[in-house]
């Protein structure tokens, strides 16, 4: 099993931390993981992305052109990465702020209304965890217990009190996916 993911959006949406969580969760499940951020000027207000590779085997290239899954959180990232999904792969996005929806027919596309759900929960900041939850139910190779462990590892201790809320958001996200 190898899963290569790109998560892309605006700086501040928690793109890098979502990636970190996935990578840590994989390690908790004794898989190999590699997290490669786009660092630099694009982090300061502009678009931001992170490539995460998870595998049973040693990870070769940390830098990739094509992905099994793209998690897209803004329009510029949609424009850039829709074409980077491998045929048969998954594109998951939050329709909030998306003006041109994806058009490809050879990939599985999931629109996850995470911002809407998060606003309903009165916790707008955890929208990214809802997206992540949806991803985990589309690609169910990580056990939720390992994800919660990964969350604990990737969050600084001062934020550990937020773990139950994040776990709840993950479950909400998982529930949003009806398609297999």
């Amino acid at each position: 099993m190898t899963e290569e993911i790109i998560i892309a959006g605006f700086g501040g949406q928690g793109v890098l931390s979502m990636g970190k969580m996935l990578a840590y969760s994989a390690i908790m499940q004794h898989l190999e993981a590699c997290w490669m951020p786009a660092y630099g000027p694009e982090m300061r207000g502009g678009t931001c992305n992170v490539m995460v590779s998870i595998s049973h085997d040693k990870i070769s290239s940390p830098v990739l052109r094509c992905f099994d899954t793209a998690i897209i959180l803004n329009q510029p990232s949609m424009d850039k990465f829709e074409s980077a999904v491998k045929p048969g792969g998954v594109l998951m996005y939050d329709p909030n702020g998306i003006t041109r929806t994806p058009t490809r027919k050879d990939i599985r596309i999931f629109a996850v209304s995470a911002t809407e759900e998060a606003t309903r929960m009165n916790e707008p900041r955890i929208f990214n965890m809802i997206v992540l939850g949806a991803y985990l139910s589309v690609k169910p190779f990580l056990g939720l217990d390992h994800v919660v462990e990964g969350l604990r590892k990737s969050l600084p201790p001062r934020n550990h009190k937020l773990i139950p809320l994040n776990e709840k958001a993950l479950r909400v996200g998982m529930g949003l996916i009806t398609q297999p």
Binding site: I27, A33, C34, W35, M36, Y39, I59, P62
Partner: peptide, 10 residues
């Protein structure tokens, strides 16, 4: 280099 310095692995 910046790739090896910035990336995270086990």
């Amino acid at each position: 280099d910046g790739v090896i310095g910035q990336m995270m692995e086990k």
